[in-house]
């Protein structure tokens, strides 16, 4: 599933010159330096607030937030768990 507000957040916070729709879903956000370790924390805070997710300590691994694809999958799976 796609979450437009996630793209807007990444664009505004980390890549202001790129329009949200131009961020490709598989772009490596870590390797490209768009999101650094501090950025991951900001991103997690955003996910928790925006999507009402509860991120556990072992989910603080930057690898889980490497791309928009991965983050979106995570949001979907976590929201499904909440729904069940």
């Amino acid at each position: 599933m796609s979450y437009p507000s996630l793209r807007s957040f990444i664009s505004e916070e980390f890549a202001p010159d790129i329009a949200p729709e131009n961020l490709s879903a598989d772009l490596d956000l870590i390797e490209t330096g768009i999101v650094d370790s501090l950025g991951v924390l900001k991103l997690i805070a955003f996910l928790e607030g925006e999507f009402d997710l509860n991120i556990t300590p072992d989910e603080l691994d930057a690898d889980l937030y490497r791309s928009i694809d991965l983050i979106e999958t995570m949001i979907t799976s976590k929201q499904m768990k909440v729904a069940v």
Partner: peptide, 23 residues
Amino acid sequence: LNSIDLRLYLMKRLPTAAIPRKF
């Protein structure tokens, strides 16, 4: 030219810490 182009370009050449936060 946009910041993603530059990032993708630098990513192949520099360690992540050496990629600027802002362009």
